[in-house]
Design a protein around this nucleic acid. Structure first.
Lengths: 103, 103
DNA sequence: GTAACGTATCAGCCCATGGTGACGTCAGTC
DNA sequence: GACTGACGTCACCATGGGCTGATACGTTAC
């Protein structure tokens, strides 16, 4: 299949807290301390979610002294957006053509 | 916030079987029987997932005798794609400007 | 060195959710 | 009417994954 929407990325983004992190990181790079303040979540919890985001290739980390800056990787999000847009285009086309499999 | 990526839609799409259903429905409208053949999943299981997709506004149903046709709603997918694209654009801009919060 | 701080890892609990079987409902066929 | 096939709903079980506390590690300040 040409466009295989990455299930892992979707699963990672499906969590509300991780989505909130992604939204915050889209605006500016932050370190864990900031995210604790912004989200109100425990540091341990955030560290787990950040690891999930890192493993999925959604964020980059940059150590800075004893801090660690997290920043969003626009390509990852853009790739997912493009794949979904392609899916939507296919569906629109199929819908316009009234394509359906007979029973 | 202007763009609030719908967490429900993401959560629904995060399931691999549901994503497979969405991909199949993007090409043509199908009824449950077809989906059972294509996916190999149990009818009951599919019915549950289809309900989730319907509740999330991702698919439309159209009764046809004793069959039920399911079709993808392109708008729902397109809206999600657009929101994600917006997020990616914001992130790209922030990254280019080197925006980061000081510790 | 020691203390304080930022961050990561681990083990455990608990809840949400996917899968399944039994059953009910509705439409078409005889 | 009785039967069959298409779908949906419900109750149950099992697994996954999110949250937490304890703890470890590395860095900076004193």
């Amino acid at each position: 299949m040409v466009t295989s929407v990455d299930g892992d990325v979707l699963k990672v983004l499906a969590d509300p807290l991780r989505m909130q992190i992604v939204r915050l990181l889209a605006r500016e790079a932050l370190c864990t301390t900031h995210l604790v303040e912004e989200t109100g979540a425990k540091q341990t919890n955030l560290s787990n979610h950040l690891r999930a985001l890192r493993d999925a290739g959604l964020v980059d980390t940059e150590p800075c002294g004893r801090f660690t800056y997290y920043s969003l990787r626009p390509e990852a999000i853009a790739a997912l957006a493009a794949e979904l847009a392609g899916l939507a285009a296919t569906a629109r086309e199929a819908s316009a053509a009234g394509r359906r499999r007979s029973c």
